[in-house]
Design a binder for these strands. Structure first.
Lengths: 142, 142
DNA sequence: TGTAATACCTCTAGTCACTAGAGGTTCAAG
DNA sequence: CTTGAACCTCTAGTGACTAGAGGTATTACA
């Protein structure tokens, strides 16, 4: 049986975050000592590892919870799990693509004025002028 | 003079968000009509474009505000602007690297069980087992 | 057995960057 | 002059925690 601190050390999830997960229903309420302190078994440890890993992969807690509810499921139900992973993969790829765009722009901006600042700074200018992505201002007010 | 709705259309920043920026001091309080509605001039429009662009680049509002305070600054002060942009570039590159790792792992997970679900699903298994990044559990409890 | 340090407990409130809604007022077009 | 869209303020909610206050339990050591 582990204390909450043990669980934290074993999983890398901070103590208040473990309590937070419990409050959100992601971890079941564990047993307590006579002094009211939480004690966790191996199943709880495994479950927290699962949550941590899902979060590391960028899944929102709702998705993690959906996956947890599929534990032990069989057959067609598992398509949900598969779907969540696939959706997340698409999302990650999308984020990478957008960050690449930012990288280019920032690299351009920082290179434009490296060191000598007796003129109007290119960094501020670049921000004011707006970048390549807003050539048509007002479009895509997402 | 633009209404807040005009400003929103021209910059792609939503109306409540514009009021939010004002409340945070990123936009100065504009003039009002006799009926108490906001009216913005060209300077406000430019400033909001600046904010939007900074946010698009992933800067937190605090950094955007720091850059705004440098408007019109000269010489060494501008090193701050340059520094913010460079820090953000490093941050973006870091995020891209980490997302690439996730992409690999997610691609692996989703490919492992594509369609046939008569066995224990690889997606759930992968989450439970933890991924390549936690080969040494408990390390780096960041 | 005493004591001191550390870990634990609950609860509230704060973070960031918005977003949603209620309930009311003003503007612009016809 | 009316109607409907756009505006106003204010409060509260989102996600995923994090920080702090004020108090109790456990544990290691003397």
């Amino acid at each position: 049986m582990h204390s909450i601190g043990d669980l934290s050390r074993l999983t890398g999830v901070k103590v208040p975050t473990i309590r937070f997960y419990e409050s959100k229903g992601l971890l079941p309420e564990p047993g307590r000592t006579t002094g009211n302190q939480r004690r966790y078994d191996a199943a709880a440890l495994k479950r927290l590892h699962f949550i941590r890993h899902g979060r590391d992969l960028g899944l929102p807690l709702a998705d993690v919870q959906a996956l947890l509810s599929l534990e032990g499921a069989k057959g067609p139900d598992l398509n949900r799990a598969h779907e969540i992973a696939k959706r997340q993969l698409a999302d990650v790829r999308d984020r990478i693509a957008r960050l690449r765009g930012l990288e280019l722009e920032l690299a351009h901006i920082t290179k434009a004025c490296d060191g000598h600042h007796d003129h109007v700074c290119a960094v501020l200018q670049a921000f004011t002028d707006c970048g390549p992505r807003c050539a048509n201002p007002g479009a895509d007010p997402d």
